[in-house]
């Protein structure tokens, strides 16, 4: 249900970098921690993109698995269920090294090929 707000945040970020050019593709990197439902994000992105440079743009998502590192014993591991205690030393000092991302990785914008050749 947070996908609408997230879609709008994506559009705002893209608009800043598109500099008025029409956007054809938006690529995101999304960590599993963010609990984003891809189908819902596709749906809301189309809605949030209306009447912006992103209108009609294709959204591509790369999902990033959650990786943790124990700051007590330096053990690193991946999790599929939300369990954040270090399996090696039982410490609670786990930091998320991957899986928290919600990044706009890149965009593809359309430009007039004839510029400078006329």
């Amino acid at each position: 249900m947070h996908e609408l707000s997230l879609s709008r945040a994506v559009v705002t970020t893209v608009e800043k970098h598109a500099a008025g050019r029409r956007v054809a593709v938006v690529r995101l990197r999304i960590g599993r921690m963010r609990q984003v439902v891809p189908e819902t994000l596709y749906f809301y992105f189309d809605f949030a993109a209306r009447d912006t440079v992103c209108d009609g743009a294709r959204l591509e998502m790369e999902l990033v698995e959650v990786q943790l590192r124990c700051t007590a014993c330096d053990h690193s591991w991946a999790i599929e269920v939300p369990s954040f205690r270090c399996p090696a030393c039982s410490s609670s000092r786990a930091e998320v090294t991957a899986g928290n991302e919600f990044d706009v990785e890149s965009i593809e914008v359309e430009e007039d090929a004839c510029i400078g050749q006329g």
């Binding site: 970020t13 995101l28 965009i107 593809e108 430009e111």
Partner: peptide, 17 residues
């Protein structure tokens, strides 16, 4: 028309933060 790839790598919630 041609397409240009623009690398961004920016947290989409940066504006909020």
């Amino acid at each position: 028309m041609h397409r240009t790839r623009v690398t961004i790598v920016e947290e989409a919630l940066d504006a909020n933060n």
